[in-house]
Simulated scan of single mutants.
Amino acid sequence: MERRGWETLESLSRIIERTSALLAGSLLIINIMDIVMGIVFRYLLKNSVIWTEEVARYSLVWLVMLGAAGALTRGDHMAIDFLVPKFPGWLKKTSVFLRLTIQVIVLFVLIWYGAQNVRGTWHMKTMALGIPKAIVLMAVPLGMSILLVQLLLLEFMKTRKDENR
């Protein structure tokens, strides 16, 4: 039973990572196509399309927020880790615990304030697209929630691997 639960957590983490990468890649393609379209319309056809700048900005925001979990899984987030491996065992464990605690606190703060921001902006519309600003701002609490789940899954799996050694 325990092995099955372990495999379920690994599967969930893999699904989150792949979904995050797929969504971020799709948004990158949308972003690039939108920018190219804006350039073509503005400079070749001499006719600006007003909403291209908003689509580029908002797709980039969503790309970053949704892609964060995939980047975490692959180890693509910036880290300065030359000092911690040189620490003695107890100090290494303490620094890892403090790092995880700070990450969880920061993510909870981003989720909380992001959700408060979303809640207060449903009545506001974007200038060009005319969509509720809450849809754009929802990227922060949603992306950070996914990142928090992935962070906790990865830490739990790492701890389990270390215990089994």
Rank of each mutant, 00 (worst) to 15 (best):
G38T: 00
Y58C: 01
V49A: 04
I29N: 02
A68V: 05
S95W: 14
G67F: 04
Y58A: 00
L27D: 00
A69G: 08
W51V: 10
A71T: 11
N47F: 12
F41M: 13
F97V: 12
L83R: 03
A69E: 06
L83D: 08
G38H: 08
I29Q: 04
G89A: 15
L60R: 06
V55P: 00
F82T: 02
Y43N: 11
E53Y: 06
S48L: 03
K92E: 14
V49E: 01
I50D: 05
R99N: 15
N31I: 07
I32A: 10
V96P: 08
V55S: 00
V55A: 10
I32S: 11
K46V: 13
M33K: 09
H77P: 00
L60T: 14
V40A: 07
R99W: 13
G38W: 01
R57W: 04
R42T: 12
K86Y: 14
F41H: 12
V36Y: 06
E54D: 09
G38I: 02
L83P: 02
V40Q: 03
W90Y: 07
L66A: 11
M37P: 06
F82P: 00
T73L: 04
I80V: 15
V84P: 05
A68L: 05
V49N: 04
V64H: 01
P88K: 09
M33S: 15
R42I: 02
A56V: 03
M65K: 10
L72R: 01
W90S: 13
I32C: 04
H77S: 01
R99K: 10
S26N: 01
L72G: 07
G67Y: 07
K46D: 15
D34L: 13
V36L: 11
P88N: 07
K46Y: 15
R57P: 00
S95P: 02
